[in-house]
């Protein structure tokens, strides 16, 4: 395994595993995350996986003193020995998560724009979007918000010039060649094409998010009635 470790401030270390993201790097990062979960050292606060890196936050005062080695030196030596023990086993098959989407209408006010921008019909946008093969690279920006890779270029569309003040949670958007799902209400500039009845972030659940890095996503077009029925069932489950 090739990697480098650098300090991130005085209480974190960032492990960089590649220059560019790829499904292989994603797999390596999840192996490192599992290894950290397994040893879960007392000095570790948490780790944050990203596209090509995984950062380890720690409490310098919790590390054994070993002058002249600094707490950072100690963390590095722990990480080196942990990383050397990770066997490059074959990736476990990804979990496939189906996300139902009610496209267009009031849930997808920008569907007509995305269609006309690309010179295709709204039905074609829906068909292409819901037939894509998507991979979750990381969660970030907002709780449970997935950075998704794999949207076909033929439905790409630029961000809005001025962002909307409030985007409803569970909205599906397009920004450039990315597609994403707004997990909570937030301002944002993505083009909205639909909404899912499925919650992406439920703080009472463990884990609190629907998705995790490495998941494959299948979007499935549903009608408005089906959307409402799923929302109703969802409410019943939570109350």
């Amino acid at each position: 395994m090739e990697y480098s470790i650098q300090p991130l401030g005085d209480h974190a270390a960032i492990i960089e595993l590649a220059k560019d993201p790829s499904p292989e790097v994603l797999n390596t990062i999840s192996m490192v995350a599992s290894a950290l979960d397994a040893i879960s050292p007392e000095w570790m606060i948490e780790y944050v996986p990203a596209f090509t890196t995984i950062s380890v936050f720690y409490r310098p005062e919790k590390l054994p003193r070993a002058e002249p080695a600094s707490p950072y030196d100690m963390v590095c030596s722990y990480l080196h020995s942990m990383l050397h023990n990770i066997k490059a086993d074959s990736p476990s098959p990804p979990r496939v998560v189906e996300i139902p989407v009610c496209y267009g209408g009031k849930f997808g006010p920008d569907l007509p724009f995305v269609a006309s921008y690309n010179g295709i019909s709204e039905e074609e946008v829906v068909q292409i979007h819901s037939n894509g093969e998507y991979l979750v690279y990381m969660l970030g920006f907002a709780p449970g918000f997935p950075y998704i890779w794999g949207m076909p270029k033929v439905i790409a569309a630029p961000r809005k010039d001025s962002p909307r003040q409030q985007i409803p949670e569970r909205s599906i958007g397009i920004a450039g060649q990315q597609t994403g799902i707004y997990s909570i209400k937030t301002p944002g500039g993505w083009r909205l094409i639909g909404r899912t009845p499925v919650d992406l972030f439920v703080p009472e659940k463990s884990p609190p998010t629907l998705l995790k890095p490495g998941d494959k996503i299948k979007f499935k077009a549903i009608g408005h009635d089906e959307y409402l029925e799923m929302r109703r069932l969802n409410h019943a489950e939570h109350s």
Binding site: A33, I45, E46, Y47, V48, P49, F57, L139, G140, F141, A142, P143, G144, F145, S183, F201, P203, P207, P208, T209
Partner: peptide, 9 residues
């Protein structure tokens, strides 16, 4: 709130 940044929290 530590331990949940990996979920975007």
């Amino acid at each position: 709130r530590f331990g949940f940044q990996k979920y975007g929290v």
